[in-house]
Simulated scan of single mutants.
Amino acid sequence: MNEIRAISLFVRTATLGSLRKAAIEQGVTPQAASLAVSQLEKHLGIRLFHRTTRQISLTDEGRRFLESVQPPLEALNDAMHGARHADLATGPLRVTAPRSLGYSVLWPLFEAFAQAHPDVQLDIQLEDRLQDWVAERIDVGFRAGEQPDGRIIARRVLPIQLIVCASPGYLARHGAPATIDDLASHRCTGYLQPNTGKVAPWEFQVGDDIVYRDVPPSICMNDPDLETRAVLAGLGIGQLGSFTAVPLIRAARLVPVLLPHTVQRIAMYLCYTRRAQMPKRVRLFIDFMMERLQASTEWHLTEEELRAGRPARRRKQRGS
């Protein structure tokens, strides 16, 4: 006996007051429906219906059984309907990203996706700590750094350059360093790494090698956005991520220095766990973000800008 089919026939018979109508609705013959209900009664050891040649009505036991099974059966039907329509772009979508990337690079795209797909409920988690994506039910995450390990799928979406830069005011007062060694005579900012609490060394491209230097900071902080503010305020020269620095450089609020030594070894990655059946809302979000991020040069210097040493300024709109 198919218990779920039998219970469903019982509930519809009780609701419609007709075994024949319930059979037609369920796509079976009246004889098959009658047999299924009889088998259910035998299986339960109770009589569910009073039957005459003209009508059918619930027994007291049948009424109690109906009250017990109707809510879970409706929940099961809702779940089955949801699973059959899982290919629609609806439902919750949990996304995680580092705070600095979330505020500067990703928020305009999150906003655009939410407007394009209003039936998807975005749950955005801005976290700098490493998360357990399975335990925290993360659908898609963004990471900055080196290629993540093979336990997750990681797709490179943006290069991240480490650009040494200063405010025009600082350079007017102190001049620009011509070499890496010249930084020793300048005020510089420092970034405290969240995992160690130590000041991160600066990185420089020297020929084919990446050289690390401990640059003594005049001011240090554990927040990339705060370090950017310090450089903008003229408190020192800083080495900033391109996703933060490049818009400010193109707006002439910061000036890059030592451009030939700019490092490009890390990137931003869009990551997700392996899934045999990925919901459509997740696939749509991944495609949406990949298309826009990979086509953008807003957040890094182009090869032409690096070679020329003069990043292009963004033209102002007329009337602005």
Rank of each mutant, 00 (worst) to 15 (best):
W107G: 14
E146P: 09
A166H: 00
L48I: 00
C188K: 01
R63K: 04
P279E: 04
Y191K: 00
P108W: 05
A184H: 07
E203V: 11
V134T: 13
T179D: 08
H50E: 15
R283L: 03
E203M: 12
F204W: 07
Y272G: 12
Q277P: 10
R156K: 13
T179N: 09
L301E: 05
Q131D: 13
I160P: 08
D149S: 14
A112Q: 15
L106Y: 01
A32M: 05
E111S: 14
R310P: 10
R64G: 04
V28Y: 02
L48C: 02
P148S: 01
A14H: 06
A312I: 09
G27H: 02
R265S: 13
H117M: 06
P92T: 00
M278V: 10
A230M: 10
E67R: 10
R292L: 11
I237N: 04
R187C: 15
R187L: 11
E61P: 14
E303F: 13
I24E: 12
E303P: 07
S185H: 05
A14W: 08
I152W: 05
L122C: 02
Y191Q: 05
V199I: 12
A200T: 12
L232M: 11
A230L: 11
W202M: 10
A251M: 08
L270F: 10
L232D: 07
A230Q: 08
Q31D: 08
A230N: 02
D119K: 04
A252G: 14
E61H: 06
T244V: 12
R313L: 01
E305Y: 01
R292D: 10
L270I: 13
R310T: 08
L192V: 11
E298L: 03
L106P: 08
T273V: 14
W107L: 15
P194S: 00
S218M: 10
D208N: 01
R213D: 10
P92N: 03
E74C: 05
I210H: 05
L258D: 02
V95W: 01
L106G: 03
W299Y: 10
Q31E: 14
V231T: 12
G197P: 00
A176M: 10
T244A: 14
L126I: 09
R143D: 14
G27Q: 06
D87M: 15
F288T: 14
L183Q: 00
Q264F: 14
Q264G: 04
V140D: 00
P108A: 01
L76P: 05
A230H: 05
V105Y: 04
T189N: 02
Y103I: 13
D60K: 15
T189W: 02
P92M: 00
Q205M: 09
T273I: 06
L284K: 06
G145R: 04
L226V: 14
T302K: 09
P260E: 03
F65C: 08
E305G: 04
E41D: 00
M80C: 13
M80Y: 12
V255K: 02
M290F: 15
L158Q: 07
E74I: 13
W299A: 15
D181H: 06
F113R: 07
S18H: 13
D87L: 15
A312W: 06
T179E: 06
L301T: 11
